[in-house]
């Protein structure tokens, strides 16, 4: 799980204005509210996750992704 956490942080970091916020992020960090990611960049983050893990995230699942941990959960579930 530590690897997955680091990989998601790396994806999010690409879209962060304040990279340090992402470097210091925890699993519980909220992607928009805590890491100050522009909400439109969540589209990029979801598409990057889909490409990296070769999964498709259902459009209706996006509202479950609030924190980094939520993103990790969605990936784990999709990978079965």
């Amino acid at each position: 799980m530590e690897t997955l956490f680091a990989e998601i942080k790396e994806i999010i970091r690409k879209y962060a204005f304040d990279k340090k916020l992402v470097d210091d992020a925890k699993e519980s960090s909220r992607i928009i509210a805590d890491l100050k990611i522009n909400s439109a960049r969540v589209v990029d983050i979801v598409l990057d996750i889909e490409e990296k893990y070769d999964i498709e995230i259902d459009d209706k699942s996006i509202n479950k992704i609030i924190t980094i941990q939520d993103a990790m959960n969605v990936i784990s579930q999709k990978q079965g």
Binding site: A40, R41, V43, D44, L47, I57, D59, I62
Partner: peptide
């Protein structure tokens, strides 16, 4: 508000963006 600058066009032109939006 969303700017009509490169970054937003890049995001919203990506394959898969319309499926999510």
């Amino acid at each position: 508000i969303m700017t009509l600058h490169t970054e937003n066009f890049r995001t919203f032109s990506r394959p898969g963006a319309s499926r999510l939006i």
